[in-house]
Computed example of a mutant assay.
Amino acid sequence: MPPEKRVNRLRTPAPDPRLTPPPMPPSNQPGNRPYSGSSPSGQSRRESPRTKPSGTSSGLYKSALGKAVRQRWQQTKTYVRRHPMLVVVYWFLVKTMLVLFLGSVAWVVVLKYVPVWFTPLTISRKWDAMGTDQPSEIHKTWRSFDEINKEAALAVVASEDQQFPYHWGFDFDEIQDAIRENQYRKRPRGASTISQQVAKNVFLWTGRSYIRKGLEVYFTVLIELIWGKKRILEVYLNVAETGPMTFGVEAASERFYGHSASSLSRSEAARIAAVLPNPNKFSVKNPSAYIQRRTRQISRQMRALGGQKYIRNL
């Protein structure tokens, strides 16, 4: 029996020629060129565009942004810990803002049921008249909504804010029209609603500033939510300036017509409404030609709105 042939198991077996790819041709032969990492179009593979999954870029951006925000927040907390006084100031401001917010809401709730006997405007007029030759007596008499002729309520709605029963404190169409017109008018036209005028007269000081305008928006939202339309119109009829040192339609009716506001006629109510834009310049008792013309216009608008039924369901 022939001896068993030893096999070297450590030697790599010879490759199968059927599985071995053909050798690359030399680079110096015609028709061949060395591979330089470029695609046939001349672009480098590293520079060739790649199709990324949708949202990858935005996800990376959000992740980086979130990391930056967290780092910034950590830096801020570290800075605050090193300066304890900032913590005291921070909590003081927070408590102050909370007290002012709760106080303003409570004030609005109280004035929903209590007559508004004075406003910053009445105090300002009283202060300006003191020490001068002008009379400093304030003419003001509070009357409930039911004690005032509805012609007066309809007149101020027709002249000042015809969308009053329907908007939520702001007439955005009127605001846009005023912005367009004020680009060409020498004297700017306002677009304040009755609600905004009440918020300004009852809660804020006179003057123009962005802070006051922002607070006006805030109080307008509050009284729309807490008071309702009927109370807003009632307060407006009692605090609106209707003449020199005269506030409210009851005081104007007694002073200029000699009778109560409960018996106002349509023309009388329209004339009071006609002077509201500038009651210190225009007069209810001695109306100019402009006021007489504006009174007729307001009376026509009152009829066009349908009369007192327009404000019946406030």
Rank of each mutant, 00 (worst) to 15 (best):
P3G: 07
E4W: 15
E4N: 15
R6T: 12
V7C: 14
N8D: 14
R9Y: 07
R9V: 11
L10N: 03
L10C: 06
R11Q: 15
P15C: 09
P15A: 08
P17Y: 12
R18V: 05
P22L: 06
Y35D: 02
G37N: 04
G37K: 00
S38M: 01
S39V: 01
P40L: 02
S41N: 11
G42T: 03
Q43V: 10
S44F: 08
E47A: 01
S48R: 11
S48G: 10
P49I: 06
P49K: 11
R50M: 11
Y61I: 13
K62E: 12
S63E: 15
R70A: 12
R72A: 09
W73Y: 15
Q74N: 15
K77I: 08
R81I: 06
R82E: 03
P84I: 04
V89N: 11
V94S: 09
K95Y: 10
M97I: 15
L98D: 15
F101D: 02
V105G: 03
A106L: 06
W107Y: 10
W107L: 06
K112P: 10
V114K: 06
P115D: 01
P115W: 03
L121V: 05
T122E: 05
R125S: 12
A129I: 01
G131I: 04
G131W: 07
H139E: 00
H139A: 09
W142C: 01
W142S: 09
W142F: 05
W142K: 02
R143Y: 03
F145H: 07
D146C: 10
K150Y: 03
A152G: 08
V157L: 05
D161C: 12
Q162H: 14
F164M: 04
P165M: 08
W168L: 02
F170N: 01
F170V: 03
F172N: 00
D177C: 08
A178C: 08
E181Y: 12
N182I: 14
Q183V: 08
K186L: 10
S192W: 06
I194V: 01
Q196H: 12
A199D: 11
A199R: 07
N201S: 07
N201E: 02
F203L: 05
G207T: 11
E216G: 06
E216L: 00
E216F: 01
F219T: 06
T220H: 06
I223K: 04
W227R: 10
G228N: 12
I232H: 04
E234K: 05
E234T: 08
V235L: 11
A240L: 09
A240Q: 02
E241A: 11
E241L: 10
F247D: 00
G248P: 09
A251D: 04
Y257A: 04
G258W: 09
A261Y: 10
R266A: 10
S267G: 13
S267Q: 12
A270W: 15
I272S: 15
I272D: 15
A273P: 12
V275S: 13
N278D: 15
P279Y: 12
N280W: 09
S283L: 13
K285F: 02
N286L: 01
A289Q: 05
R294S: 00
R300L: 14
R303T: 15
R303W: 12
K309I: 14
Y310P: 13
N313G: 15
